[in-house]
Design a binder for these strands. Structure first.
Lengths: 219, 219
DNA sequence: TATTATTTTTAGACTTGTCTAAATATTTTT
DNA sequence: AAAAATATTTAGACAAGTCTAAAAATAATA
């Protein structure tokens, strides 16, 4: 059984590998985990000994099948607890990350299955991220960043690619929440900022940076 | 902020001090925590440096005000999570201890307050143990062990002094659950076993050992 | 009270996870 | 392709928590 620390490394490597197909570099992991490269190297050796990652000196690492299964299990735990915190304890989506970081390490398949049942087998967490099932299967819906969407099409907010508290709070205040329907009314060419229409009446201006981090589904 | 290990020591010392007014001895702590006396001594020094316990060489330790506050906070967390596991996730009272042992270390007053609210500010956990409030105040009701109760009085099961899985499962099977009303019909002098009447019709025989570990309230 | 027996502490070692500083590889740039 | 920059690894150290074996203190008993 992996320690909490090891679980965090696996989760981190999983996250990086989602974007970089080549794998996770020592420095990338160090930056994500806010630790030092030397520390990461030490841990990579340990994870490699346990056959959780594919590690060759000076090369980016990838997860083995076992490692990936463990990583997906942590992700599942994390996202289910986030659903619990938002749906049941009434936290808002920008408050739950730190709590879920702790709760995700609670060890027990039985517990997490009961939680899953209690929550009604949710498919997505409060940020729109998909929740792997108990076998590690993960369903993704094909979302695109808002900045890549076309004007005048019916869109629905179904995720974010930035989980930062400030960003999420801003979205809350602007009513750009999960499930919100919207249409792009105008795209300003010079700075790629855009004007949105939500609820068929309210007009909102957002910057390119914000648009990039909002994921939408075309209806 | 204390580590999980330190929190377990504080909780353990609190538990022992509930019974032994003089304090918790090194060996008692080692036995309860299933570790070695030498390890305990090391930790006692650390806790003492942090002013969490009163420690003098070769003497039983007690908690300081700060230490007691921390211990009560862990106890509160533990018991609230147990209520959650039984009430919401539908575990039975003999299954929840290990999970709560992990959940009790989740750090956040805000989280535990929300959980408390969500559960409706319960006063007792699924085993009948009182839940300290956020200030560490703990209300106890005056229960007595069933073996000390008199025959033919109306009694109500309101706690257990043994939290062992086998014992609790046995109680489950015999319908000797929390809140159960009963009357002692006969006490056998030679082995102190007794015959109980529950639900005004079902007769149950229990040993002295079992009776000792059931706490009842006289109505 | 002197002698056992028990309890507690000390000393030294090990593991996990972390760090800094230095050495070695790999990449990038010229 | 050589020099410079960057990335990664090694070496050695440290803190937390644990252990065994041995020493010291306290308690029990003859």
């Amino acid at each position: 059984m992996s320690s909490q620390t090891q679980e965090n490394y696996l989760k981190c490597i999983y996250k990086i590998c989602e974007k970089n197909i080549q794998g996770a570099s020592t420095n990338a992991i160090a930056e994500e985990l806010e630790t030092k490269a030397a520390t990461v190297t030490d841990m990579l050796k340990k994870l490699s000994n346990q056959k959780l990652i594919n590690y060759k000196k000076y090369q980016a690492v990838t997860l083995t099948a076992i490692g990936k299964k463990q990583a997906l299990s942590i992700v599942r735990n994390h996202r289910l607890w986030e659903v619990f915190l938002v749906e049941k304890l009434k936290f808002s989506w920008n408050e739950v990350h730190e709590f879920a970081e702790q709760l995700e390490h609670i060890k027990s398949d039985e517990l997490i299955d009961r939680l899953d049942l209690y929550l009604g087998h949710p498919k997505f967490d409060p940020h729109g991220d998909p929740i792997p099932n108990k076998n590690g299967k993960i369903v993704t819906h094909k979302t695109i960043p808002l900045n890549e969407a076309k004007s005048n099409e019916k869109l629905i907010i179904s995720g974010v690619s930035e989980h930062n508290d400030d960003f999420l709070s801003y979205l809350n205040e602007t009513n750009l929440i999960l499930g919100q329907k919207l249409v792009i009314k105008k795209i300003n060419e010079y700075d790629k900022s855009m004007q949105l229409l939500i609820n068929k009446k309210d007009s909102i201006f957002i910057s390119h940076t914000v648009a990039k981090n909002i994921l939408v589904l075309c209806q």
